[in-house]
Simulated scan of single mutants.
Amino acid sequence: MLDTLHHIINDLSPYLHHYGLFILALAVAVEGFGIPAPGQSFLIVSGMLAANGEMSLPGVLSVGALAAFGGNCIGYLIGMKFGNVLLEKGWIKAETEQKLHAFIGKYGIAALLMSRFVEGLKQTLCIGCGIAKLPLRTFLLGNALAPLVLVIIFGLGPAQLTHEVGPLVTFYHSHRMLMWGIGSAVVATAVVAILMWQRRRQTA
């Protein structure tokens, strides 16, 4: 795990030193409208560089959140305006569209929160929201929350834990089942809370 982290830092740090927040914004934004990019990895490394005084932490967090929000909005607009074209050209397969519709219909705002943490889904979900004609108000609410969660976990988290990575990895390997249990419980609680809130709104 530490070796992988070192590789990521060594590979991405030169780009951040040379291009700064621009490359971070670009990598995070394009993931919101269908282009695979190492947005989360750039955010993690940016947070770690900020912890060492090499970047501005407020800048990293604000640029990461705004880029995610803007990229997701572009994806939503692409789905709204050009969804039929994407389907006709085969750029989005019919079965993929059906899965996105089902996922969005089932989880709503929670789908937007979860999408940024699932490879493949984070590139297509916002386009799917547009194709599915998810109400703009619902989309904007979910899209306001999702970037905040993203930068807290992948930006602020690494910045706060940069100097604690070694002890944390040791603790994780010693208490792996406990850590997985706590993490699963936190995610499940958040998803259930959002679903309950949505059902209350629908029945109100």
Rank of each mutant, 00 (worst) to 15 (best):
L2N: 14
D3R: 15
L5Q: 13
H7M: 15
Y19M: 08
L21K: 06
E31M: 08
E31I: 07
I35E: 11
I35K: 09
L43H: 05
I44F: 04
G47I: 08
A50M: 11
E54C: 09
E54T: 08
V60Q: 05
V63K: 08
A68C: 07
A68Q: 04
G70D: 07
I74Y: 01
G79M: 11
L86S: 03
I92W: 06
A94T: 15
T96P: 14
Q98E: 14
K99A: 12
G105T: 02
Y107K: 08
G108T: 10
L113Y: 03
L125T: 07
I127R: 02
C129T: 03
C129A: 12
A132D: 10
L134I: 12
L136M: 09
F139Q: 01
L140F: 08
G142F: 03
V149H: 14
G155D: 08
L161C: 05
P167T: 12
V169T: 12
T170K: 12
S174A: 15
H175I: 06
L178D: 01
L178I: 13
G183H: 07
S184W: 07
A185K: 07
V186Q: 02
V187P: 03
T189E: 13
V192E: 02
L195K: 00
M196Q: 14
W197P: 01
R199A: 13
R200L: 08
A204K: 09
A204R: 13
